[in-house]
């Protein structure tokens, strides 16, 4: 039982990080109907940003978090501007391929610059508490706290602000909303900035929880978050959070019963099974096609 509870804490921690990344995938899909495959690598790069920042200037945790989020947001907007915007009206396949290509460019550039994994300097000295047989560190609380805080902030943003409402409107109706004077380019840029900033936060949190970072993290971790977004119903922000915690739990508990090499197998099989039985994810709704 204690063991189970301990694993549950780990699952929540992992799920929180996945959720932050998954939100980026889902928001972009909601607004642009495009799978932003590069997002996982944006997340990966953000932890390298953090690494570089600490190398140059040992700033406190919160400052590092904010700086990295800002830098990653700028990166996200640049990618949208340079690679995706020219393809806004191109066939959907072109956009997916471009995203895949951008991801690989980022990943392999990082790999070429830093062929080996890097050990992250400690951002934060955690205190651990023993509590009814469980071990909880202040880092875990911080990770979950910041993630949940950011998710709530995002939820507020989407529901209450002008840009948020424009995002939802575009997601609802892609044909007429842009005709009604909504500044589509701005809204899309904001979407990318927000998604990337959340990915950046995830990068910092991930690097403090698992302090060895490498260029393959985009595929190993970022794509898991993508799986989470799809499981929840890509395009659906709450679905992304649901999928992320579900996936975090599945992954953590898989490793407790099976060798860790089965982790990817289980995750991707789960994805396949869910897509077979619920082709649009747990909370997603199919687009109606009229004849």
């Amino acid at each position: 039982m204690d063991y189970f509870a301990q694993q549950a804490i780990n699952a929540i921690q992992l799920g929180s990080i996945y959720a932050l990344i998954a939100l980026g995938y889902s928001m972009v899909y909601g607004v642009l109907v495009m799978i932003n495959f590069a997002h996982g690598d944006v997340f990966m790069v953000s932890s390298f940003f953090c690494f570089l920042l600490l190398l140059v200037l040992p700033v406190p945790f919160i400052a590092a978090l904010l700086i990295v989020m800002l830098a990653t947001a700028i990166l996200g907007v640049c990618i949208e501007r340079l690679a995706y915007r020219p393809l806004r009206n191109a066939p959907r396949v072109s956009a997916i391929i471009t995203a895949l290509g951008c991801g690989l460019v980022i990943q392999n550039t990082t790999l070429s610059i830093s062929p080996y994994s890097q050990r992250m300097p400690e951002l934060f000295t955690p205190v651990t508490w023993n509590f009814a047989g469980l071990t909880i560190s202040s880092l875990q609380i911080l990770i979950v706290g910041i993630s949940v805080g950011l998710m709530l902030a995002l939820d507020f943003f989407i529901r209450k602000t002008r840009y948020g409402m424009a995002m939802r409107a575009i997601a609802q109706d892609r044909v007429t909303v842009p005709l009604m004077g909504v500044p589509v380019n701005q809204v899309i840029a904001v979407t990318f900035a927000l998604g990337a900033a959340l990915g950046g936060a995830a990068g910092v949190l991930y690097a403090s929880a698992y302090p060895v970072i490498s260029a393959t993290m985009g595929v190993l971790v970022g794509w898991k978050a993508f799986v989470a977004a799809v499981i929840g119903g890509i395009g659906n922000v709450r679905g992304a959070v649901l999928g992320a915690y579900l996936l975090g739990a599945v992954e953590v508990f898989t490793v407790t019963v099976l060798p860790s090499t089965y982790r990817d197998l289980v995750v991707y099989t789960l994805l396949l099974v869910i897509l077979i039985f619920k082709p649009y994810g747990l909370l997603g709704r199919p687009a109606v096609q009229k004849v």
Partner: peptide
Amino acid sequence: VILPLILV
């Protein structure tokens, strides 16, 4: 890096 860049 170059090959995916070509693709993009």
